[in-house]
Computed example of a mutant assay.
Amino acid sequence: MSQSSPTARPARELRDLLREGEAVTIVCHNNPDPDCLASALALGRIAAAAGVEEWRIAYSGEISHQQNRAFVTLLDIDLQPFDPAMARDRPAGSLLAFVDHSVPGRNNRVPADAPVDIVVDHHPAEDIDARFVDHREGIGATATIFTEYVRDLDADLDEELATALLFAIRRETLEFLRGTTRAEYEAAGYLHERADTALLRQLASPSVTGATLDAIATAIEHRRTRGSVLISNVGRTTERDALPQAADYLRTLEGVETAIVFGIAGRSIHLSGRTTDPRIHLGDALDDAFGDVGAAGGHQDMAGGEVPLGVFADYTDDDEALVDIVEQVISARLVAELRLSEESSG
Score class of each variant (00 low, 15 high):
residue 93 G to A: 04
residue 39 S to M: 00
residue 121 D to P: 04
residue 123 H to Y: 07
residue 240 R to K: 13
residue 251 R to W: 01
residue 184 E to T: 06
residue 217 A to M: 12
residue 266 G to P: 07
residue 126 E to R: 11
residue 242 A to C: 08
residue 231 I to Q: 13
residue 6 P to L: 14
residue 271 L to V: 06
residue 24 V to D: 05
residue 52 V to T: 08
residue 229 V to W: 06
residue 60 S to R: 11
residue 302 M to T: 06
residue 215 A to L: 15
residue 90 R to I: 14
residue 58 A to F: 01
residue 171 R to Q: 08
residue 152 D to H: 12
residue 113 D to T: 14
residue 44 G to R: 13
residue 40 A to L: 10
residue 64 S to A: 11
residue 226 R to S: 12
residue 76 D to W: 01
residue 202 Q to V: 03
residue 174 L to N: 13
residue 214 D to P: 01
residue 39 S to E: 00
residue 19 R to L: 06
residue 98 F to G: 02
residue 215 A to H: 02
residue 130 A to G: 02
residue 138 G to E: 14
residue 209 T to R: 12
residue 322 L to G: 01
residue 183 A to V: 09
residue 204 A to Y: 09
residue 42 A to L: 12
residue 165 L to S: 04
residue 117 D to E: 10
residue 260 I to V: 13
residue 149 Y to R: 06
residue 9 R to D: 01
residue 27 V to L: 10
residue 296 A to C: 08
residue 216 I to Y: 01
residue 125 A to E: 07
residue 46 I to Y: 08
residue 248 D to L: 10
residue 128 I to S: 02
residue 112 A to K: 08
residue 216 I to P: 08
residue 3 Q to F: 12
residue 75 L to D: 07
residue 204 A to K: 07
residue 50 A to H: 01
residue 237 T to G: 02
residue 244 P to E: 05
residue 265 A to P: 01
residue 85 A to H: 12
residue 195 A to K: 10
residue 144 T to H: 03
residue 198 A to Y: 13
residue 211 A to P: 02
residue 247 A to F: 05
residue 92 A to Q: 14
residue 268 S to V: 06
residue 168 A to H: 05
residue 205 S to D: 14
residue 328 Q to L: 15
residue 54 E to Q: 11
residue 331 S to C: 10
residue 69 R to T: 04
residue 49 A to T: 05
residue 43 L to A: 12
residue 289 A to V: 05
residue 148 E to R: 06
residue 303 A to N: 00
residue 29 H to R: 13
residue 292 D to Y: 06
residue 199 L to R: 15
residue 25 T to E: 14
residue 246 A to V: 12
residue 83 D to F: 06
residue 245 Q to F: 04
residue 41 L to M: 15
residue 252 T to G: 02
residue 166 L to I: 09
residue 69 R to W: 03
residue 321 A to G: 02
residue 317 D to N: 10
residue 93 G to I: 09
residue 180 T to P: 01
residue 343 E to K: 09
residue 255 G to R: 11
residue 309 L to N: 05
residue 264 I to P: 03
residue 313 A to V: 02
residue 226 R to Y: 06
residue 148 E to F: 00
residue 345 S to W: 07
residue 146 F to C: 05
residue 302 M to V: 12
residue 259 A to M: 06
residue 2 S to Y: 07
residue 342 E to F: 07
residue 248 D to N: 15
residue 205 S to F: 13
residue 241 D to E: 09
residue 186 E to N: 01
residue 74 L to W: 13
residue 287 D to T: 07
residue 44 G to W: 08
residue 337 E to I: 02
residue 133 V to G: 00
residue 133 V to K: 10
residue 120 V to S: 02
residue 18 L to I: 08
residue 207 S to G: 14
residue 22 E to T: 14
residue 256 V to A: 03
residue 92 A to T: 15
residue 304 G to F: 09
residue 253 L to M: 11
residue 41 L to W: 08
residue 209 T to M: 04
residue 20 E to M: 05
residue 271 L to E: 03
residue 49 A to F: 04
residue 286 L to A: 03
residue 271 L to T: 03
residue 246 A to F: 09
residue 45 R to E: 14
residue 269 I to T: 12
residue 27 V to Y: 03
residue 89 D to M: 11
residue 184 E to V: 01
residue 208 V to C: 13
residue 189 G to M: 01
residue 102 S to Q: 04
residue 127 D to V: 05
residue 31 N to P: 08
residue 81 P to N: 10
residue 226 R to L: 03
residue 191 L to C: 10
residue 114 A to K: 09
residue 303 A to F: 00
residue 68 N to E: 03
